[in-house]
Amino acid sequence: MPAISNPDQLVLDEPQLISRQPLLLARGMVKHYGAVTAVAGVDVTVYPGEVLGIVGESGSGKSSLLRLLNLEEEPDEGEYYLNIPGYASANLLKVDRFHRRELRINHIGIVYQYPHLGLRMRYTSSGNVAERLIMAGERTFSVMRQAASELLSASEFPLERMDDLPCHLSGGMQQRVQLAKAMALKPQLLLLDEPTSGLDVSVQALVLDTLKRLQRLTHVTIIIVSHDLGVIRTLADRVMVMRRGHVIETGLSDQVLEDPQEAYTQQLVHAKL
């Protein structure tokens, strides 16, 4: 593992008790943007039903890594596997565009920090959700309408606003539309990129609560990127700390927050209000 500054770092055993296979396995992910190395050889393992948090300051490479895992950008190096029917042994970085699109529609959902990245601002909110169903082949209006309303309601979106354009909604509501859209086709993997960062604290708490409830009901596997340690503590089972494109520390959320091993993580934790 690169960039470990702490020579005393305890090396843990390989998993022994857990009988499930990881849902997600990424190895040696590298991404350069020109001279900048955003992701410098990162490994990620996530088990089904787990919530993995990725923390780090701006520019640490956490959002870049998420875009690689969402198959929306191609890494320069790496291997990426998802244990889902039909793809279990395929390095997803090598699959053709057709299958990549199929994966992104049916198996991976994403919520971005900026709603305009995830939503079409000129479609209604219900239309945004229904679009996913159309992509999956649904053609009956009443079925789509019903599904959209159920999904929005599961995200605790006020249904009387479902025909409003997202640009007329508050930030918290926009995130709920993104969430309903991301979950529309019951993906195995839900990626969250700073989903509550632009929201005021009270709205943030409500959106987090919705996420937690949804996770409990659907057992969807989640990777959440955030610079907010409170968000990570609330949602994540395990945490990866990134700095300058490297993973410098991983552990159970409470352990990383209460007994951080690396000098950088100690600073990060103690800098929290």
Binding site: V11, L12, D13, P15, L17, I18, D237, R238
Partner: peptide, 20 residues
């Protein structure tokens, strides 16, 4: 002595601890 087998809590993988 877990129901899943013997394990050293000091060094067990995070995911095993999460399971326990």
């Amino acid at each position: 002595h877990s129901l899943h087998g013997l394990i050293d809590l000091a060094r067990a993988a995070d995911i095993d601890i999460a399971l326990l």
